[in-house]
Every structure is written in C-alpha cells, then in structure tokens.
Simulated scan of single mutants.
Amino acid sequence: MNAVVDTARRQAQEYAGEEDRPLGSYLGTLGVYALTTATMALLGRRLRDRPPAIGLADLALMTVTTHKASRVIAKDPVTSPLRAPFTRYSGTAGPSELSEEVRGKGVRHAVGELITCPFCTAQWVATAYAAGLVFAPQATRLAGATMTAVAGSDWLQLGYARLQRAAEG
C-alpha cells in the first residue's frame, strides 16, 4: 500500500512542479461526483420502471438551464456568500458578474476552483437536472423553464443596453 501512496505522491509532484495543485482534493471531488451519480442512478432504477425519455425539448431546456444556473452559482453577486469561504473578491467580470480569486489549499482550493468556474459547475448542474427529471420531472421542468426565461431576459437586457448606447453615441 505504501508503494501506491508513494507513487501517487511522486506523480503529483512531477505533474505540479513548483505549483500548488491539489490533485488529491480534485480526486476527492471526482469521487463525490461519481458516488452521487451512481447513487442517483441506482435509486432511479429502483424507484422507476424505466428512465424518462429526454426529448429535444427537455434537452434544450436542460442546456439553457445548465448554462444559466452554472453562471449564477459561479459568478452572481447574490451567490457570493456561498463562495466566500473559498474565494476572495477581486472585482467585476461583466454585467452583474463578479471576478473572484480562489484561496486556500487542498480541499478548500479545489472547491473554490469548482464553484468559480461555470464550465466546471455545469457538469454538476446538468447531473442534478437529469436526476430531477427522474425523481421530480414536473418541478424540474418548472425550474428549468424559470432559469431559461431568466437567461432569455439577460440577453434582452444586454441587447437593450447596447441599443441605448448606440442611440446616445
């Protein structure tokens, strides 16, 4: 067993070089994701005769919802208290979005990277949405429709602001 641990530590050192890369913590988050996904799949299989069919309409709703929910989690000022234990405010990143630096080491750093990256968070959001379609499809679709409407509204707000600037200039 010590040989496995020594090999893993050596590989982590060779990978990271002088940088602080929390590979063990990343492995832990991957483990949590895999365990959660497997548990949802097993529960879904036990509680349902068959998995729900995901048609194009559900896929479109899931796609827009995943995009918007991931950005809300990772960038929205209102969700910054959830990120605060893992990040440091460093300014704004665009309309109604924050820029934050990840802080800490180990698990704290790994979680900080996960929750400040909308691309990283998207996988977790999409998985939760898929589980929602299995366990509570109507509520999940309602939440998805709400987030999709918010995403559409965002684009309209940005377009409106651009038109206002064009009219002034």
Rank of each mutant, 00 (worst) to 15 (best):
S25Q: 03
G44R: 08
D20K: 11
V125N: 01
Q138P: 00
R48D: 08
A126Y: 09
R71H: 10
D154S: 14
R165A: 15
R141A: 06
A84N: 11
P85V: 02
E100T: 03
L82T: 08
Y33C: 01
P118N: 14
A3C: 02
A93I: 04
R141C: 05
G44P: 07
A84W: 15
L114E: 12
A136Q: 08
R9Y: 08
Q123H: 12
G169I: 05
G94I: 07
R162E: 14
L98S: 05
C120H: 07
A110H: 00
M147V: 10
R141P: 04
G28R: 04
A69P: 01
L43A: 15
A12K: 04
R141F: 02
P52L: 03
A130K: 02
A110E: 12
T116C: 09
Y33N: 01
D76G: 04
P77W: 08
D154M: 04
A130N: 01
S80N: 09
S96W: 09
A122R: 11
L156Q: 07
G132Y: 05
Q11K: 07
V107M: 08
R103H: 09
R165N: 09
A3R: 13
L42E: 14
R50I: 06
H109T: 01
L82F: 15
M62H: 05
A128S: 14
P51E: 11
L59M: 13
G159L: 09
L163N: 10
E100V: 00
L30F: 13
R10E: 13
